[in-house]
Design a binder for these strands. Structure first.
Lengths: 237, 237
DNA sequence: GCGTGTTGACTGACCAGTCAATCTATTCGG
DNA sequence: CCGAATAGATTGACTGGTCAGTCAACACGC
């Protein structure tokens, strides 16, 4: 119906502190059913996929009645929209913050790669859902959020551009392409973990951060220590 | 039900020569309705997405009766399976062929990147469908074809491994990771074109091949002329 | 006794897949 | 050569099941 409703004003990440499921116990209201539904949806979407699951699966997983899902969300779509936007917004903010700091490119891009990989490490299901059902779904959801997704690419592109202007990165590789390449490497690694094509111990994830930077920056940087000696030996088609 | 049927033994790419739609006219049989349906499905899947389209949309697009789709294919799924396998098999063969030739890594990987980008250039809709509906769909189809998809990664990984053994690529970046990175960059560029986030003239596509190689190989290769001087300056956390 | 939260049975639409009937081409006996 | 028999291609109305979303009623705090 009326386009997007955009609930969830603040960041609202936190909570989820303790472990148990059980009833409220404490004094305050019941622990935000809305959040309960959202978290359950992540699990269900990750397990069965957005299209293959029913709204009742989400309700069951959350342990609430079917109708309550529609009390908090206008539609099944809105549940996914909310999950995506909530997380993507956090990432956009991180990129902006990182960009604002006076750091070398390697560290800026490293911080972004780390954030994404840590996000996966912290909540693999959520990242799976975002990537599989939104980011990579050119039809349906990808189309709806294309503007938001694009913003991330542009922000990264701006970082690359600045690095080029400062003489750290080769100017002949267009910044937009470089940004896509950088993001593509990260997303493909996540995909590898999601599909279980790549080993995913804590150690591997940590090492992957280094690999991303080493691979991409290595190719983007002007050769070596900018000593002048080894510059432009084999490139320049 | 019974798993895969795997029609389409040969490659069977070609056909589709002339332009017009109209009735057969000539003498021979009507031009392979099966192919007609497959080609129509590509267009419909690309336009509406696999889940959002109805089988009747495919039949309409192909200009055949609804039931005929089921004469040639056991299910809607099988149509997509066929499209994917048909194309992926061609790519796997190309990678094997390239690997068998005695070429420098840059040229091997360049040939693979070129093939994929040319495939997109030649039939964007088909590549869009394969990437969006299969390759990146961790649930449903991605799951079904995971083995076939993985084969491509492994083949590329083997190329990287050999390059490492020959001393062209850094041994400290695991070959499997490097292969994912390489493929990830390409897929993300295609995604950029599919979503219209990146300019896509013939010139851009051609240039992209170079960017992929320059970026990835640049990061993977042992620094410059392997002089020993600039090695391991800032890495090794 | 009002509003927010909560329940779950119900409905209306939608669509994958079926099937009996019709059409077309090819074979073959006479 | 012709017409009957056979097999495959083609048609589209119909069915059965599934599910997103609705709604009337109930719970409960203030």
């Amino acid at each position: 119906m009326s386009a997007s409703r955009a609930r969830a004003p603040g960041a609202a990440t936190g909570s989820q502190g303790g472990g148990g499921e059980g009833p409220p116990a404490g004094g305050a209201k019941s622990p935000d059913k809305r959040r309960l539904i959202l978290d359950a949806a992540v699990r269900v979407f990750a397990r069965q996929g957005f299209h293959a699951c029913r709204v009742s699966d989400i309700a069951d997983e959350a342990g609430v009645a079917y109708g309550l899902v529609y009390h908090y969300f206008a539609s099944k779509d809105e549940v996914l929209d909310t999950l995506f936007l909530e997380r993507w917004e956090v990432m956009l903010q991180l990129i902006r913050d990182v960009d604002a700091k006076p750091l070398p490119v390697r560290e800026k891009l490293g911080a972004i790669a780390s954030f994404i990989i840590d996000s996966y490490s912290h909540d693999p299901d959520l990242m799976k859902v975002i990537i599989v059902e939104v980011t990579r779904a050119a039809n349906s959801f990808g189309d709806t959020h294309i503007g938001t997704i694009r913003e991330a690419y542009e922000l990264i592109g701006a970082i690359v551009e600045k690095a080029q202007a400062d003489g750290y990165f080769k100017p002949e590789i267009e910044a937009r392409f470089a940004a896509m390449a950088f993001y593509g490497v990260i997303e493909q690694l996540l995909t590898g973990w999601i599909f279980d094509l790549l080993p995913q111990g804590q150690e591997e994830l940590e090492r992957a951060k280094w690999v991303v930077i080493e691979t991409v920056c290595g190719g983007l940087e002007i050769d070596a220590v900018s000593d002048g000696t080894t510059a432009g030996n084999r490139l320049l088609r």
